[in-house]
Design a protein around this nucleic acid. Sequence first.
DNA 1: ACTATATTTGACCAGTTTTGTCAAAACACA
DNA 2: TGTGTTTTGACAAAACTGGTCAAATATAGT
Lengths: 97, 97
Amino acid sequence: MSNFGDLIRIAREEKGLFLRQVAAELEIDQAIISKFERNERKPTKEQVLKFAKFYKLDKEVLLVEWLSDKVVNDLQDESLADKVLKAAEQKIKFKRK
Amino acid sequence: MSNFGDLIRIAREEKGLFLRQVAAELEIDQAIISKFERNERKPTKEQVLKFAKFYKLDKEVLLVEWLSDKVVNDLQDESLADKVLKAAEQKIKFKRK
DNA sequence: ACTATATTTGACCAGTTTTGTCAAAACACA
DNA sequence: TGTGTTTTGACAAAACTGGTCAAATATAGT
């Protein structure tokens, strides 16, 4: 199962870049990027988009990864997760009308 | 489509109670309850449980309503909602193993 | 319109959480 | 050991939450 951190770590490694270099390019402290890569901290939406652009990753893929991490985080109480997701789906459907 | 606010407003009206009374009973400021009923503010989990108990509503129903409101709130970008919910589902499934 | 009561609104505060900065510690490896 | 990279943790700044209160607004009865 993928997650935001893995995606950006792999992308960085594939390009053979150091945290320092990415940090300079994106103007984000390298300590923070390190934490993003280990899923220790959640980036802002802006930052997600910066990573997508810089690593040339699909913006949507990265956003979905990031948002679903956030949703999972809301559902601490696993036991209700299924019901909650179903309910959320219904609400979204309803909103679209 | 229901939501947390509607549920507790209807419950209160069915019991013929004033905000003031509920506020006193639950020790929550009536201005806040008013905002909960209009979905202007999100209660804490504790508060959700207080309402369930006081109005004798099913705890789980109320929690699902509350959590799914939270999830929908995360998904500002409706266009990705379906993908995000599917991804979240996968992550939950994965976590369970 | 006036009164009385109920609800909503908005300004403000305090406490918590999140985000960013930095330097030291830990790690990798020649 | 020496050099360069990554991780960790302490700290501060900023943003967000949750609560309090009183004034404004709405509602109903007279």
